[in-house]
Design a protein around this nucleic acid. Structure first.
Lengths: 115, 115
DNA sequence: ATCGTATTTGCATCATTGGCTAAATACGCA
DNA sequence: TGCGTATTTAGCCAATGATGCAAATACGAT
């Protein structure tokens, strides 16, 4: 799983894990807390967390028998930066749409002039 | 593969596919053109493209025996929006860093005052 | 030392994925 | 019609991933 982006995106490619991140965005949580919303066995949850940890999306401390998980921004920022590369492309597309819209409106106006 | 984000992220979770998108950001290309930079058999390329198409990241027309692929912005925008949810979290972290830096600088200044 | 809670590890299973080769398909052109 | 190029389908394999159950581990509290 070589580079960061690959492990980050593949970690994000799972709804359960995305939901976990959403939960963690509101503050740290234990494994059991994170498991609560899902109909999944704890070992399964544990493994999802390991994937997230492997991607650097979360870190965990060891506090008594609990393992509080904490969201880490770094990989998300990197993913954001990668997608950011295409933002120009988004706007181009948007501009094109806008241009087309203008053309249509102009045509329509012209049409109405005739009447 | 239920929702858009899942298929989008899992499509992005492969370096070859990301490279293909990077190429397509500069304009449409045929399968063979897209295959050129990689040491992969054409059927493999073809399947990568099918994944990208399945995620809506590309569309293709049929022009003679060629299948030009074109980058589509929509899924990237959605992924961008999802990650955008966490942007506040990024900046928080950044602010914290900045605050810490200020504290350190203040401490250092104080230290120098003493001398 | 023992009990109970929190979490992980160890198989086993089933589906998916990425890759290859060989064969099929689709189309323009001679 | 027949050839050559472009691309996909089919079949096979190895690796990975998601999930469950049962057992192990870790640690606080009694």
């Amino acid at each position: 799983m070589q580079d960061h982006l690959t492990s980050t995106f593949s970690a994000l490619a799972d709804p359960t894990r995305r939901a976990m991140l959403a939960r963690l965005a509101q503050g740290p949580a234990t494994v059991t807390e994170l498991a609560e919303p899902f109909a999944l066995a704890l070992p399964t949850i544990s493994r999802h967390l390991k994937v997230l940890e492997g991607a650097g999306l979360i870190t965990r401390e060891k506090s008594a028998q609990f393992r509080p998980c904490r969201l880490e921004a770094r990989p998300l920022e990197e993913a954001d930066a990668w997608i950011g590369t295409y933002r120009e492309f988004f706007s181009q597309r948007f501009d094109a749409l806008e241009a087309q819209l203008k053309t249509m409106m102009a045509a329509k106006a012209k049409e109405e002039d005739k009447q």
